[in-house]
């Protein structure tokens, strides 16, 4: 295996671990901090904020290793949108399962988001000329 390929594989593994970790942390924090009897809309807003905080803490620790942008895009999607979804689940679904179960779902959600961002990145990756932006304004 070439060193470039090995490096790409290591970064990809790191991306998935970061996504899974952010998902698990977000799901667990939301589960612990948000009262299931809270109004669902308020719970979703709090969940979003908690998810963003979880992402920022994990991001601050890992971005020097994984790269700021590769961490910021999927990590913030997991934190913000995951926080909203997990809070919605916890207020609608009684009981939502053990802490271990919600963390596991968080890991799966994180993996799914990282995979989705990678697919989106591949789709946008090919170089192209934007002739419509030439001259212009």
């Amino acid at each position: 295996m070439t060193s470039n390929r090995r490096q790409r594989l290591l970064f990809a593994t790191g991306d998935y671990l970061m996504g899974g970790g952010t998902g698990a942390a977000t799901a667990a924090v939301v589960r612990v901090a948000i009262d299931p009897n809270l109004d669902m809309v308020l719970a979703m807003l709090f969940g979003m904020v908690l998810g963003m905080i979880a992402h920022l803490v994990i991001g601050a620790a890992l971005s020097p290793l994984l790269g700021f942008f590769h961490l910021m895009v999927p990590g913030s999607l997991v934190g913000m949108y995951g926080g909203m979804l997990f809070a919605m689940r916890d207020t609608m679904q009684h009981p939502a399962g053990s802490l271990g179960h919600v963390a596991f779902v968080g890991v799966l959600f994180g993996f799914a988001v990282v995979a989705g961002v990678r697919v989106y990145d591949r789709a946008l990756h090919s170089p192209h000329a934007h002739t419509d932006r030439t001259g212009g304004l």
Binding site: F69, V73, D121, L124, H125, H128, A129, H130, T134
Partner: peptide, 17 residues
């Protein structure tokens, strides 16, 4: 573009960020 340049190529390196 607003500064008066012509954009020749705009390649996405990581998503479109």
């Amino acid at each position: 573009l607003r500064a008066g340049f012509e954009v020749l190529h705009e390649d996405n390196i990581y998503v479109d960020v």
